[in-house]
């Protein structure tokens, strides 16, 4: 079965995506993401291999051990407030990107990033049209 180190897990759901037996269950509400590992009996360690945080290990099956479960509150976007990602994922991305890029956008949800980009690229054109219309 699978053991989880909750201090390492970032809540990305890779493990759940790659599990061929649907043994890793996810539930997501607008507020939080929850992951539960069923007592897996397969001869398989795909999730262990493909966890980007190396949070999983394969251990001998133990019927008395409770099924591990972790939950993450989702962080709210700085702009629109919508909750969009577990904080450890955002911290990991922020740490991975070069400081020189000052990647604060990580704290804006992708929809707000698109909106900002659309406004930035059309801004000059819209202003020119307004001037023209007087």
């Amino acid at each position: 079965m699978i053991r989880v180190d909750p201090s390492l897990c970032i809540g990305c759901l890779s493990c759940s995506n790659v599990c061929p037996s649907q043994n890793i269950l996810r539930t997501e509400t607008v507020e939080e993401r929850r992951i539960r590992w069923k007592r897996c009996r397969e001869e398989c360690d795909l999730c262990v291999e493909l966890c980007p945080a190396r949070a999983l290990t394969l251990v001998p099956i133990d019927e008395s051990a409770p099924e591990p479960e972790v939950s993450f509150p989702l962080v709210g976007c700085r702009i629109c407030g919508r909750r969009y990602a577990p904080e450890p994922m955002l911290r990991r991305v922020e740490a991975a990107l070069p400081k020189s890029q000052s990647p604060e956008w990580v704290w804006d949800c992708p929809a707000c990033r698109r909106r900002a980009e659309a406004e930035r690229t059309t801004g000059e054109m819209v202003a020119a049209r307004r001037r023209r219309r007087g």
Partner: peptide, 13 residues
């Protein structure tokens, strides 16, 4: 693996 880290990293969404 569908982890979604790329989506969170792209500055343009």
């Amino acid at each position: 693996t569908g982890c979604g880290l790329c989506s969170l990293a792209c500055p343009f969404g």
